[in-house]
Simulated scan of single mutants.
Amino acid sequence: MSALDAFRLDGRIVLVTGASGGLGAEGASALADAGATVIITGRREQKLAAVADRIRATGGCVHTRVLDMTDADAVRSAFGELADTVGPFDALINNAAQAHQAAVLDVTDADWARIVDINLTASFTAAQAFLRRRNTTRSTSIVNISSLAGVIGVRGQAAYVASKTGVVGLTKALAVEVAREDVRVNALAPGYFATDMPGEVLANEAATAALLRKIPLGRVGQPAEIGPALVFLASDASRYMTGAVLNFDGGYTAQ
């Protein structure tokens, strides 16, 4: 196998959660470009359909499923049905997440529970469902999307930081446990990207300028730039990599 062939995903089935927009949508498009049959899930049916149309327009193969990742029973049922109809999974991109900005004393019990549920608990539920219905004939991969907030502290984001740090811990625990079954588990930790999630910061000129001074590359990431990293982690190109956290933040966490 050549170096470039190792990045190909032909014949692989990859499930991407939270793929109705932002980094999830861009990642799904890249995975399809690399040859994967992509299953995309999300709560917004129309946006999910639009992402699927875009993938099909470039010759990609995609299936959609409207799914609330915080409903554990629905997740287990959906993963089982999809594995039966599309085929056993070769990779899972655990991307569904929600941001939360509030001073620590303003974080309510409901806020905390909601953020931890979607960002951390749903990642565990999806990983568990994937492991039950994965392709056992070759190496498979789970990619958990953490954040620079899973590596460093961020003011005003106690619930988000805790949940994304939990994703890093979950990644390492799973990696050690399932490695002998030829399942790799890694985390991708994006920094600031031009998506809706950091919208409040990027909409403020002064806040954006202050942010860019902290990023050595001097800019925020473009959504399409996430795709090649996900292809790497989902493919045989990262066959000897597990339990790792790949910082993808323009150098923010290198300081």
Rank of each mutant, 00 (worst) to 15 (best):
R155D: 08
L148Y: 04
L120A: 02
R114I: 04
K164I: 02
V86D: 10
S139W: 08
I93E: 15
A113I: 14
V161M: 06
A102H: 08
I145G: 10
T137W: 07
A158F: 01
A102G: 05
A78V: 07
E81G: 08
L148P: 00
V116Y: 03
T70Y: 07
I142T: 11
Q157H: 02
N94I: 09
R133S: 13
R76N: 15
Y160R: 00
D73Y: 14
A162C: 08
T140C: 04
T165Y: 10
S139M: 12
L82T: 10
D71H: 01
T165N: 11
A159S: 06
A122G: 12
A149R: 07
D117P: 04
V143G: 01
V75L: 13
R114D: 15
P88A: 09
T121C: 06
V143F: 04
A158H: 11
I142R: 05
V75M: 13
N95Q: 12
N94C: 10
Q128R: 09
G150E: 10
Q101C: 03
R132Y: 02
Q98H: 10
I152W: 07
L131T: 09
A113E: 15
S77P: 12
A126E: 10
I115L: 11
D73F: 14
T137N: 13
S147Y: 08
N135P: 04
L148H: 04
D73I: 13
S163W: 11
R132F: 03
T85G: 03
T125W: 02
A129W: 08
L82A: 10
G166H: 06
V151L: 12
Q128L: 04
A83M: 11
V107T: 08
V151M: 07
A129D: 14
S139H: 13
G156E: 02
R76H: 15
A97G: 15
F79M: 08
V151R: 03
Y160L: 09
T137R: 15
V143T: 02
N94F: 05
A103K: 00
D117E: 05
S77L: 13
A127H: 14
M69I: 15
R132Q: 02
S77T: 10
A96V: 01
A162P: 14
G156N: 01
R155M: 05
D84C: 12
Q101S: 05
A110F: 01
R114S: 15
R132A: 02
M69R: 08
N135V: 01
D111K: 07
A149Y: 00
P88Y: 03
A149N: 10
I93F: 15
G156V: 00
R133W: 07
A72D: 12
A74K: 07
N95M: 04
G80K: 01
A102M: 03
A72C: 06
A158S: 15
L131S: 10
S146Y: 06
F130I: 13
T140V: 10
Q157L: 01
N119E: 09
A96L: 05
N119D: 11
R132G: 05
L148K: 09
I93P: 12
A158Q: 14
Q98L: 14
R138M: 15
A83N: 11
D111A: 04
P88W: 05
Y160Q: 01
V151F: 05
Q98M: 13
A159D: 03
N94Q: 09
R155T: 07
P88F: 02
V154L: 06
N94S: 11
G150V: 12
A102V: 01
I152K: 13
P88K: 06
S139A: 13
A129C: 09
G153T: 00
A127K: 09
D117R: 11
D117M: 03
V104T: 02
F79S: 02
